[in-house]
């Protein structure tokens, strides 16, 4: 465990809590892509199956449970409690175009051909594209509430810190998890465009982020 990894996990937790509280307090999920939240819940479900098979640390177990609970709670807010405010019209990204290639690739490129390992690999590949429906929805509506952009900022920061964590672990321990690193780099690249807009528009105090 190193500071990059720990701060990355904290940013991830902050992002998830920001989104949950935004929906809960505004009693609305307008501008939020339910599909991305479903994909994240699937990522956690397929990745954290080892909750039942391997104990790593209290921290590891607690964080996995918290992420799973918050992910499913957020999905239930979007699709059940505040479903009237869910803008399914704008949340039109075809997730099958993500799920099929990701599933196929996880069978082709993995560390070992066992159910747990393939599901873990699936979750790694899926996480790198899970945010695309949300980013697509923002380009479609042409705007995002500032709180939504803060959610995306912390999510992108968590991924950037994980890259730093891998650089550190490679330097310190010679650790290199190729599947996680390649997939993580791809995922972080998707945030670059958003980061540019975030720093040039939202942080200039323009409140909403409106796309050109």
């Amino acid at each position: 465990m190193n500071i990059f990894r720990l701060s990355g996990d904290v940013c991830h937790l902050v992002a998830i809590i920001i989104l949950f509280l935004k929906i809960w307090r505004s009693k609305s999920c307008a501008g939020i892509s339910g599909k991305s939240q479903l994909l994240f819940a699937l990522v956690f479900t397929t990745r954290y199956l080892d909750l039942f098979t391997a104990f790593i640390s209290i921290y590891n177990t607690v964080m996995k449970v918290v992420f799973l609970v918050l992910a499913y709670a957020t999905v239930s807010l979007i699709y059940f409690r505040f479903r009237k405010s869910y803008d399914s019209e704008s949340d039109s990204f075809r997730v099958e175009f993500l799920l099929v290639p990701v599933a196929g690739l996880s069978f082709l490129e993995n560390y070992s051909f066992t159910p747990l390992e393939i599901l873990w690999t699936f979750s790694i590949y899926l996480e790198s594209v899970a945010i695309l429906p949300q980013l697509f929805m923002i380009t479609k509506t042409g705007e995002a509430e500032s709180i939504t952009t803060h959610y995306l900022f912390f999510l992108g920061l968590y991924r950037t810190l994980y890259l730093a964590n891998w650089v550190w672990r490679y330097h310190e321990e010679g650790f290199f998890d190729q599947i996680a690193v390649v997939s993580g780099v791809v995922q972080t690249i998707f945030y670059c465009d958003f980061f540019y807009l975030y720093f040039t528009r939202v942080l200039r105090g323009s409140g909403k982020m409106t796309l050109p």
């Binding site: 465990m1 996990d9 080892d50 590891n60 560390y111 070992s112 994980y162 996680a180």
Partner: peptide, 10 residues
């Protein structure tokens, strides 16, 4: 190979 690597990352 990485299989025996403990997946300690979230």
């Amino acid at each position: 190979d990485l299989d025996d690597l403990e997946k300690d990352e979230l």
